[in-house]
Design a protein around this nucleic acid. Structure first.
Lengths: 228, 228
DNA sequence: CTCATCCTGCGATGTGCGTCACACTGTGGT
DNA sequence: ACCACAGTGTGACGCACATCGCAGGATGAG
């Protein structure tokens, strides 16, 4: 684990507000996992009590309906945590985790983390805050599903991806989200075709340029207004 | 606070696994709040750092869209906790809490709870579990919004209400949910009219009987099958 | 009791978006 | 360099559900 990894890990809620000594000890018990594009880390209904922090790459969390249709809960990048639900609430996983790009993760098992929580009660506080934030976000998304039309949800998803993965460049914000339009559709709860038409419409209006698994955002203000 | 209240409070995640002494001390610092039907406990965007546990009655949590349309996050009964998001993550409330029926609540402020968490780290664990469960439930509901049609969501909502508020009686399960069809519609993310038609259809099939702010569930198995 | 208000029931109409169908394009594998 | 297949772009069509409109019941305030 290099210096950059240490820094990325330090921004995860698990390490926030931990003193150097504690952080060092915690780093000592994480194990590193490597995934190639498309590889599955864990699947729905499996047992599992490990928590992961993304070091590098992108991971998608998906759920599969009984009839096979999929829905994408979120796409996670560096410093983001996942898999903790089965750790705090010992039940099978309710989502699958699949690498969207080649990725490296830091993993922590229940048995390794638990004694740590006892020694460092301040971690629990940060974890509670992280979960509270997630619940807020999820409630927000629920409201969007009910009140916002598909183009609006697409705009919102793009803005979210832009905020987290966007890189400023000449001629706009370059958002290499690494998602197919199919995946984007699963993320906003719509069909691939409708998402494609929404994107084409945005592009035609000059708000963005469509690239392979990426977009160039040209007019972020219009996009933002469309999302509300 | 009477014996029944003590028992109701004991089933809340906050008190779970707490020894008698700790529970007694925690009960000593809660304050009781009384609400009449329709009364607002707190509103969206307000500051607030209090957590509540329902002792008696029902509370609905609602969000209002900019254009005035509402959506109902959940309906909470005895032993259920709410308002904790602003406590763990200090930001304005993202929902309003309104009494559906006359209700009594136990309230705990940030400043009173915090020292307690330090002395009783095991509480944090239970709180993490409670939030994890809530996230699971919320993700489930999101998937339903995407994949399940309105009648299906209505059936599911009724089953959930039945499980939590239903009372066995002659000729079926009596579910006095105390919600208007409008509120039920906001809960499942649909229009009042569509929910009305779904209910009428269920009633006509003999699966339930519609009453004022209540239903008699006659054939829970069919209802269950319709919900999937 | 009486009127106002809230709630329920239900048909008529419009529309956003899912589904289907098919052509085009880019990418990786051998 | 080729082919196969995954991903993208677009139109035609139908349906589930929102919206609108209105009428009949229930509830409760005075």
């Amino acid at each position: 684990m290099n210096d950059r990894d240490v820094e990325v890990l330090g921004r995860a809620p698990l390490f926030e507000g931990l003193d150097d000594e504690g952080a060092k000890a915690l780093r000592a018990i994480v194990t590193e996992v490597h995934l190639s594009r498309g590889q599955t880390l864990f699947s729905e209904d499996q047992e599992g009590d490990r928590l992961y922090v993304v070091l590098d790459g992108k991971i998608k969390l998906t759920r599969t309906a009984p009839d096979g249709r999929e829905n994408l809960l979120s796409v996670l990048g560096p410093s983001e945590m996942f898999g903790e639900l089965s750790l705090f609430d010992p039940r099978p996983r309710t989502a699958s985790a699949i690498a969207v790009t080649e990725s490296r993760l830091a993993a922590l098992s229940h048995s390794d983390l638990w004694p740590f929580l006892k020694d460092h009660p301040e971690i629990s506080v940060h974890l509670l805050r992280a979960l509270a934030q997630r619940l807020r976000r999820t409630n927000e998304n629920m409201a969007d599903l009910v009140f916002t039309d598909v183009p609006g949800r697409v705009a919102k998803a793009l803005l979210d991806l832009a905020e987290r993965f966007g890189q400023p460049s000449e001629s706009g914000l370059h958002v290499h989200h690494d998602l197919t339009q199919e995946e984007l559709a699963q993320l906003v709860g719509a069909s691939r075709e409708t998402v494609n038409k929404a994107l084409a419409d945005f592009a035609q209006r000059g708000w963005l340029r469509i690239e392979a698994r990426a977009v160039q955002v040209l007019d972020i203000d219009r996009l933002r207004r469309r999302s509300r």
